[in-house]
Simulated assay, not measured.
Amino acid sequence: MRHAFGTTFDVDDVYLNTPSIGVPPQPVVEAVSTAVSAWGRAQTTAPQFDGAVATARAAFAQLVGVPPSSVALGTTVSGLLGLVAASLPPGARVLTADREFTSVTFPFVSAGHEVVEVALDELPERTGAADVVAVSVVASVDGGIVDLEALRAEVGPDTLVVLDATQSLGWLPADLGWADVVVAGGYKWLLAPRGAAWMALSDRLAERVTPVQSGWYAGGWDAIYGLPLRLHPDARRFDLSPVWLAQVGAAVSLPWLASLDAEEVRDHAVGLANRVRRGLDLPAGESAIVAVRHHGAADRLAAAGVRCAVRGGAARLGFHLHNTDADADTVLEALS
Rank of each mutant, 00 (worst) to 15 (best):
V11N: 01
V11S: 07
D13I: 08
Y15E: 05
L16D: 08
S20R: 12
V28F: 02
V29L: 09
A31I: 13
S37G: 11
S37D: 15
G40S: 09
A46Q: 14
G51T: 14
A54E: 15
A54Q: 12
A56Y: 06
F60T: 09
V64R: 03
G65T: 07
V66R: 02
P68W: 13
S70Y: 07
S70D: 13
A72H: 03
L81S: 00
V84D: 07
L88G: 01
L88V: 00
P89Q: 11
P89Y: 12
R93V: 10
A97Y: 05
D98K: 05
D98E: 15
D98W: 12
R99P: 03
T105H: 00
F108D: 04
E114I: 13
E114A: 13
E117V: 09
V118M: 07
V118F: 00
V118T: 14
L123K: 08
T127E: 11
A129L: 14
V135S: 00
V137E: 07
V137L: 02
V138C: 06
A139N: 04
D142R: 00
G144I: 06
A150G: 12
A153W: 06
G156H: 09
L160W: 12
A165P: 09
T166W: 09
T166G: 03
D175M: 02
V182A: 04
W189H: 14
P193N: 06
G195H: 06
G195P: 07
W198S: 03
S202N: 08
R204C: 01
R204P: 03
L205V: 07
V212W: 12
W216H: 10
W216N: 06
L229V: 15
R236L: 01
F238H: 02
L240N: 02
S253G: 05
L254V: 03
A258R: 11
D261M: 11
D261G: 05
A262G: 11
E264H: 10
H268W: 14
V276T: 04
R277E: 12
D281F: 10
L282G: 03
G285R: 05
E286N: 03
S287I: 11
I289N: 05
V290L: 12
A291S: 11
V292N: 00
V292K: 06
V292W: 05
G296D: 15
G296P: 04
A297E: 10
D299C: 00
R307S: 06
A315E: 11
H320Y: 13
H320Q: 13
N323G: 04
A328D: 11
L335P: 00
